[in-house]
Computed example of a mutant assay.
Amino acid sequence: MHYFLTNRGKVRPHNEDNGGVFQNKSHQYLSVVADGMGGHKAGDVASRLVVEHLQEEWRRSEKFHDKLSAGNWLKSAIETANTTVYQKAQENETCYGMGTTVVAVIYGEDFISVAHIGDSRCYLLTSGVLSQVTEDHSLVNELVRSGQISKEDAEVHPRKNVITKALGTEKYIQPDIITKPWQPENKLLLCSDGLSNKIDNSELLSFLTDDKPLEDKAKTLVEVANERGGEDNITLVLSDYCAEKAGDSSC
């Protein structure tokens, strides 16, 4: 049902992205993508710390039967991850100013709970319609929301990559929490902006609806992003709600 992939890209000297797909004691899944803040020291440290924290907390968690408890867990886990990253930054000169985006998803039997900070995204495909679940915490998105620029202008804005909210840069922070239905044949994509900046929604829809296995889809998406410049790290999680029995090769 899930496939995680990260790639350094073609320009950056190292990969500041992180992420993964993890199981808890009840065999429920948590997927995470984190993009260490470019231009800041130790962005890779920040993204690694938040992913490791969420993975460890998730490993110890019990089964979530409803969206409220899942959302509360995400909020609490991300807030404590923020404390971990913030304290590390304050105590280590080489890490001062580091931060990271994060987008994380808990998969229930009939719902997903999504938490995010920054401009890493969650997309959901339902009945052939692709929607962006998260709303970027970014300068250009604020300009779009206030009517100062159009969505088309935002795509080419010189400050497109400036984010207005990041994990680890402030002592206290709250993630956005969103809940959506999760049903057979639904598909989900988490990604850093190294992917979303290179592939538009119509192309994403085409990639997600083809019949290739998840691994092939993920590798193709990364290849396309790199072919179009690969200036940033590229990280994604693909998830399918398979109606077939567990173990089917298509899942």
Rank of each mutant, 00 (worst) to 15 (best):
Y3G: 08
Y3S: 09
V11M: 05
V11T: 11
R12Y: 08
P13S: 09
P13C: 08
E16P: 02
D17R: 10
G19V: 02
F22Y: 11
F22K: 03
N24P: 07
Q28E: 13
V32Q: 11
V33S: 10
G36F: 01
A46H: 00
R48F: 10
V51S: 01
E56S: 15
K63E: 14
F64V: 07
H65T: 15
D66V: 04
D66F: 03
A70V: 08
N72Y: 00
N72A: 12
W73F: 15
W73N: 05
W73H: 06
K75C: 06
K75G: 04
E79W: 00
T80Q: 06
A81W: 01
A81T: 07
N82Q: 02
N82T: 03
T83N: 04
K88R: 12
K88L: 04
E91G: 04
Y96L: 11
G97D: 02
Y107F: 12
E109I: 05
E109H: 02
V114T: 05
V114Q: 04
H116K: 00
G118P: 02
R121L: 01
R121F: 03
R121M: 03
Y123M: 05
Y123T: 03
S127H: 08
V129A: 12
V129I: 14
Q132E: 02
H137W: 04
H137V: 02
S138E: 05
L139M: 14
L139T: 07
V140W: 06
N141V: 00
N141Q: 15
E142S: 14
E142H: 13
L143H: 07
L143K: 10
V144T: 09
E155F: 00
V156S: 14
H157N: 07
N161I: 01
T164V: 02
E170I: 13
K171E: 15
I173C: 11
I178Q: 09
T179D: 13
K180G: 01
P181I: 03
L189A: 01
L190T: 04
S192Q: 03
D193F: 06
K198V: 12
E203K: 12
E203F: 14
L208R: 10
D211L: 13
K212T: 13
P213D: 10
L214F: 14
D216V: 15
A218W: 13
K219R: 15
K219I: 09
L221D: 14
L221G: 12
R228F: 09
G230D: 11
E231A: 11
D232I: 02
N233L: 04
N233P: 13
I234C: 05
V237I: 07
Y241S: 08
